[in-house]
C-alpha cells in the first residue's frame, strides 16, 4: 500500500510521519497532534498564516498579524491579497480582530503586536 512520508510541522520537534494513503493510518508520530496532522495533510491541508498589515503607528511601520485558526492551504495567496485592505489604527492591542471572516473562511485576522503610538 502506498505511504506518504512527511515531516510533521505541528511543533518544532519535527516528527517523521508516514501516512497510509488508503487507511490514513499515521505512524512515526510522538503525540496525538501528529496523527491528526498526518491525516489532514492527505484530506484537507491547512496552515496558520502570519504576515503584517499597514498601520498609522509611528513606533513601527507594520503590525504583525495571524489567522485566528488554520486556513485552507490553497487560500493562502488570496488571503495575502485581502490583507492589503487592512489599515490598523493605533492603539492596536495584541488579540484585536482586524478583519472578520477573511475570504469566507470563517477565520479572523488578529493583531499579534500591541502599539500605542
Amino acid at each position: 500500500m502506498a505511504k506518504r512520508e512527511m515531516i510533521c510541522i505541528v511543533c518544532p520537534v519535527g516528527c517523521h510521519l508516514s501516512v497510509d494513503e488508503e487507511t490514513l493510518e499515521v505512524t512515526g508520530n510522538r503525540c496525538p497532534r501528529g496523527a491528526k496532522y498526518g491525516k489532514k495533510e492527505l484530506t484537507n491541508p491547512t496552515r496558520m498564516l502570519t504576515s503584517t498589515v499597514k498601520t498609522n503607528a509611528t513606533l513601527q511601520r507594520r503590525v504583525s498579524i495571524k489567522t485566528s485558526d488554520e486556513i485552507p492551504k490553497g487560500k493562502i495567496f488570496e488571503i495575502m491579497d485581502e490583507l492589503n485592505t487592512i489599515d490598523a489604527q493605533v492603539p492596536v492591542k495584541s488579540g484585536d480582530i482586524l478583519l472578520k471572516n477573511v475570504c469566507d473562511t470563517g477565520v479572523d485576522i488578529v493583531a499579534t503586536t500591541s502599539l500605542d503610538r
Binding site: C11, T50, K66, T112
Partner: peptide, 25 residues
Amino acid sequence: LKQCIHNGFGIHKFNLELTGPEFAE
C-alpha cells in the same frame, strides 16, 4: 522576537503556539 512574526514559539514554556511578538509581549 518583535520581527519574528511567524508562529511556533512557546510550545514548551507556555504550552501555546505563539508568534514571536506574542511571546515577547
